[in-house]
Design a binder for these strands. Sequence first.
DNA 1: GTTTAATTGACAGTATACTTACAAACTGCC
DNA 2: GGCAGTTTGTAAGTATACTGTCAATTAAAC
Lengths: 169, 169
Amino acid sequence: MPSKQAPITMDAVYAAPGYLFRRMQQIAVALFMEECAAFDLTPVQYAALVAIHTHPGIDATRLSAVIAFDRSTLGSVIERLEAKKLIDRKPSGEDKRVKLLYLTRSGAAALRDIMPSVAKAQARMLQPLKPADRKVLLGLLTQLVDLNNEASRVPLRAEDALEHLGRSG
Amino acid sequence: MPSKQAPITMDAVYAAPGYLFRRMQQIAVALFMEECAAFDLTPVQYAALVAIHTHPGIDATRLSAVIAFDRSTLGSVIERLEAKKLIDRKPSGEDKRVKLLYLTRSGAAALRDIMPSVAKAQARMLQPLKPADRKVLLGLLTQLVDLNNEASRVPLRAEDALEHLGRSG
DNA sequence: GTTTAATTGACAGTATACTTACAAACTGCC
DNA sequence: GGCAGTTTGTAAGTATACTGTCAATTAAAC
């Protein structure tokens, strides 16, 4: 008895969680860009600014671990932030390879100013759901990202996990 | 009384749904590429193959609407699929601008063969959740993508919505 | 303490994702 | 049936996201 193949329908795409995450990510970026149009900042650049604000003097490799973005990609992100004079890069005295990252005055101001628009964008993308469903989704999504952390190409390593790195703890 | 600013913490990134969707999308791609390493196909290329299989003779613009991927991007995706001889592009007799897309024999075989690995990848990304939670998340995610459809840069237009287009209904 | 290994930032190359612009072709209006 | 506006595919430009590789530097091993 030959094994009958299920016919291939568009559900093989539409019902795949991977497809839905891709769509939702694109929607998230579109809403961010719409709400934050006045600031000339991308979601990735925003995340980098927050991390540099929270960890002044962080280097690019650790920044990559703290926001879970690819190190190579982050190179050009940093370049652009530096070109816009939102961050400064200073050589480390301890390690000649390392360049430490700091917000400029203008970078700190930009971050402060963009926060309400970011919050608006984040709220808008969950808006269509009932308030209770928003909480459920956000909870499950947070869990899922956390539990799949190691499957990521660039797993998140929050600051605690980085303390043993750095200057030879 | 000066309005007190909430201090900016990494939660401004970690708790943002947009950030979580980005992370999850990256995890989804990583799992897809891992499971499907033997096939030299990306998630986007897979979705395009499914859509061309389901809609033989579709053109690039309608393909873009059916999978909700950007038209410009899709141009190079199609180029690569054609270079790999997985699809054919034939001029339309009715409209000299249009190039119709078809799976080649080898493209149909590739699609058939990759399906189990795709299914495995899709299952793996939800695996860490309890079965009941998987259903809840997938349901809410499907709803959310659907309800935010118009916020997308390239809203999904399923085949029904496309019927009035095409050869001058 | 010198060979070895690991780390850092940089670069090249591929693949999405979006923007605007464009020529060719089609459609609608009159 | 011809002009206006639209659609199709394409291209150029920017921004992620990843793979490698590389030189310089540092740390670890012995």
